[in-house]
Design a binder for these strands. Structure first.
Lengths: 147, 147
DNA sequence: CTACATCTTAAAGTAAACTTTAAGTCAATG
DNA sequence: CATTGACTTAAAGTTTACTTTAAGATGTAG
């Protein structure tokens, strides 16, 4: 099956102009064209787009994605580099997820902070004077005095 | 203790110009100035900066952070809105972490793909002809045929 | 064969989040 | 009280990742 840029755009829920932009930036060197110059996406190309999406969603800049794709196009001679790019991206994702977990902990504290304040009708129940540590869930102790 | 913009920048590992930019954008309405016009960061202001950092790291745009801070400045009358802002940010973080986990799964598959290819000296061991599903770890089955 | 939606390009425009520059002021030290 | 490093501002510049525009070509349906 072969798709036009608009069909792929709809399938992947991105703008067609975005796919054209990726192509212009060299992210789609595998793409073939019709006699008239139309982009023709093959089934396999959708897999490439999934890979690009994965790298993009994990924060890799377009230029670095291009570099990775270029390595892929060079075949087996670049296996080492391809592996190390993916490994370091994986490590970056793990680090980012750890950070996200910390931020989530903080947001959960704030939800608790505002739920209890809402119930009391005032944030002042959290003022140092009015707070007894015993009333605060243990997991939030590290956040007291946060704004 | 009171800190200058440069001292806070160093502590939080951001550029002083970034803090000035945040101030200009209205993220720091609590900030006081010295007689000569210098920004004076109080201990409590560092807590605000931690909150801003949390919202920023979880992808909230500057304008939305400003709106949240503005709500905070309005006090108890805005508890409901403050709660719902934080709740929806928490939900967004949970969703993002789920997405990140999927991307991590894919990257782990790719690490396996390239480690085995490296060992074999060629990616062709993963070609449909050469692959027996039994040799592929179960958790990677959903990724076969990915580029 | 004619519409007509969809495609093509290059170039310009946009938005967000800073960063840099330039000209000048503040405040701590000797 | 002069020096010096850090501060102040407004305004312009940068980067990234698109999006929009304009003019024209393609390809499919009737």
């Amino acid at each position: 099956m072969i798709y036009t840029v608009g069909e792929v755009a709809k399938q992947l829920n991105v703008a067609a102009s975005t796919l054209r932009y990726y192509d212009k930036e060299g992210l789609l060197p595998f793409l073939e064209r019709s006699g008239g110059g139309m982009r023709m996406f093959k089934e396999e190309d959708l897999s490439w787009l999934k890979t690009i999406e994965c790298l993009k969603k994990t924060g890799m800049p377009i230029k670095d994605i291009k570099h990775f794709i270029d390595c892929c196009m060079k075949g087996d001679s670049k296996i080492d580099e391809r592996l190390s790019i993916i490994e370091s991206q994986r490590d970056a994702v793990i680090k980012k997820m750890e950070e996200m977990q910390e931020m989530l902990d903080m947001l959960n504290f704030k939800v608790w902070y505002y739920e209890t304040a809402k119930e009391a009708g005032t944030c002042s129940i959290h003022d140092p004077d009015n707070v007894q540590l015993g009333n605060i869930p243990k997991e939030y102790h590290k956040f007291i005095n946060e704004k």
